[in-house]
Amino acid sequence: MFDIIIIGAGPAGLTAAIYARRAAKSVLVLEATAYGGQIINTPDIENYPVAAHISGFDFATKVYEQAKALGAEIVFEKAVEIEDHGTEKAVITAKNRYIGKALILATGSENRKLGLEKEDSLVGRGVSYCATCDGAFYRGKKVAVVGGGNTALEDALYLADLAESVTLIHRRDSFRGEEGTVARLKEKPNIHFMYNSNVTKLLAEKRLTAIEVTDRNGAVTELAVDGLFIAVGRIPENQNFAALIRLDEAGYIQAGENCHTNLPGIFTAGDNRTKEVRQLVTATADGAVAATEAVKYIAALS
């Protein structure tokens, strides 16, 4: 039996492992694919304190090595189900059943994709899912943002101060996002709007060079852009916990800043929890909080 089982080896899960090991708890980290989580897609992190420039891959590798050196056991198996038996919790993978006193669910979320050809291979070469991460690479360039929610609107605002021009493409005729933000967008001279339109094709050589936009009437426009920021929502990876853990309508685990879920002894950390700011620094912060709460929970068991 482990003291703490952490599901997900991204920044939140691995930071939780570091804190739990430093509290002398036995720790198992289960990871479905490879360590690092979505931060590995960021070529250059510039907003993490102290590390003025670090690649997402280097960041992930350092956190992974730190957690391992402290004695966390990291196993590459996907958690398909969890069970709550009071003082014991079980995590089921395709091959094994692991028992722990406390669980930390740190599975993160994935970007909803447009589903276009070449979308995956152009990530980091003109296609981005994170304006605050990658916007600085588009200083003085032409970009487009696709989406109609708050993230898309905020991305467009953020990019308007960096890029030469920003085209905001939305499939409806009005935005779901906050009106205040919409008003601020309309004041920016370099933001252009394309309503009732979808991005239907990515044109690229080595990098993205243009996008094809199709409007409701079927009219096709080719728009030359250096960058396309896709902000059409995120999908939290909580499906396998839904039977036990209370999720919100969008599928995020309902939890406050203390990272408690609806079940005692089961905590959550990082992007798969309900929160306002989903950033690297808030993911690692969650890891610290969730591990500390889990340690407290275990202490109260005995």
């Binding site: 590995i40 992930a60 590459f76």
Partner: peptide
């Protein structure tokens, strides 16, 4: 190669 280094612990296992 970053992904190679991420694959290494999986192959080790």
């Amino acid at each position: 190669c970053g992904p190679c280094r991420m694959l290494a612990p999986i192959l080790e296992q």
